[in-house]
């Protein structure tokens, strides 16, 4: 499909190269959304909604940034990103599982707190620029294929890792014993409990691991894009897009991948069109596109799904209490 698109572009006389670069950078830009969405799938499959993805991403970004800035070690930076976001997710887990708080409000609290903390601790390095740690690898023999080469085989190592991650998470959920327990806890916690599965342990584990995936997304932003830490626009709402994507993908990791790339493309539309010298579109309107796309997508999904609930875990958002009487 990509090939025919490319040949169409070639014959129509449009500068193919610009579009290929755009698509390649869309794949790269999709990664933080992808990681965050996969993490949210793990979390929601256990029955807990974590709306705090944006907050966890921000914490992941700032922790990874500070660690990388201080140590120049990509590994340490990644670990810090994971831990920071995981710690925030742990707060959510404690509130929602142990204290049975309202999951929606807790998630929002995470966003507000995460944004506040990252701005607070990130203030001293505001505007500081760092070098990207991961540069693109060329897969021998494949990277010089037309279109497919640069888009798929000339990416940084984390892009290849992400494919592995998606496959393993899908396998874990659907084909393993702990995955079965995870699904049961999200579908019917009382059943899982009766079978001797600790609902809270499963939920704690997946909320925190899910948060760490968001942290990985945050670290990716730092280590691949190597931006300046900037209070306003580091994540630009992609945490929320990831949440919408989970619904769109019916809580399945495989489907999330394609959605994420589409959003990556929308997020990069501004630059891609500039590269293609298409300037009649106002930049602000282009920047709205990913968000408009999310709204349209969510509405479309819910219109086609009235009453059916797609694949939403049946106990999603409901605290589990065994002894209430």
């Amino acid at each position: 499909m990509i090939g025919s698109f490319a040949s169409f572009l070639a014959t129509s006389g449009i500068n193919t190269n610009v579009w290929v670069v755009g698509l390649a950078s869309a794949v790269s830009f999709a990664m933080p959304i992808l990681f965050a969405a996969v993490g949210e799938i793990l979390c929601e499959r256990s029955g807990i909604v974590n709306l705090g993805v944006e907050g966890m991403l921000l914490c992941g970004v700032v922790a990874a940034f500070l660690a990388y800035d201080a140590s120049d070690s990509a590994a340490l930076s990644m670990v810090c990103g994971l831990l920071a976001a995981g710690a925030l997710a742990l707060v959510h887990a404690f509130l929602c599982i142990t204290l049975r708080s309202n999951q929606t409000v807790s998630g929002l609290a995470l966003v507000i707190f995460g944004a506040g903390v990252s701005n607070f601790v990130g203030e001293p390095v505001e505007g500081k620029q760092i070098e990207a740690a991961f540069t693109d690898l060329r897969i021998p023999g494949l990277h010089d294929l037309p279109v497919v080469g640069p888009v798929l085989f000339h990416q940084n190592v984390l892009v290849y890792v992400s494919v592995l991650v998606v496959i393993s998470v899908a396998f874990y959920i659907n084909r393993t014993r702990p995955g079965l327990a995870l699904r049961a806890v999200g579908e019917s916690p009382a059943t899982a409990d009766a079978q001797g599965i600790s609902v809270s342990k499963v939920r704690y584990a997946h909320v925190v691991i899910g948060g760490m995936f968001a942290g990985l997304g945050g670290a990716y932003i730092v280590l691949v894009d190597g931006p300046a830490w900037n209070q306003e626009n580091t994540t630009g709402g992609i945490g929320w897009i990831a949440l919408a994507l989970v619904v769109f993908a019916s809580w399945r990791p495989g489907r999330v991948m394609f959605g994420a790339i589409a959003f990556g493309f929308a997020l990069r539309a501004n630059f891609t069109l500039q590269g293609a010298q298409i300037t009649w579109f106002p930049a602000e309107v282009l920047r709205m596109m990913p968000y408009v796309l999310t709204v349209v997508m969510l509405i479309a999904v819910s219109i086609t799904d009235v009453g059916n609930k797609l694949g939403a875990p049946a106990a999603l958002g409901r605290p589990f209490v065994r002894d209430e009487r």
Partner: peptide, 11 residues
Amino acid sequence: AIAGMLEGAVL
């Protein structure tokens, strides 16, 4: 940002 951080913590 202390304000935002404290708001989140209070919530």
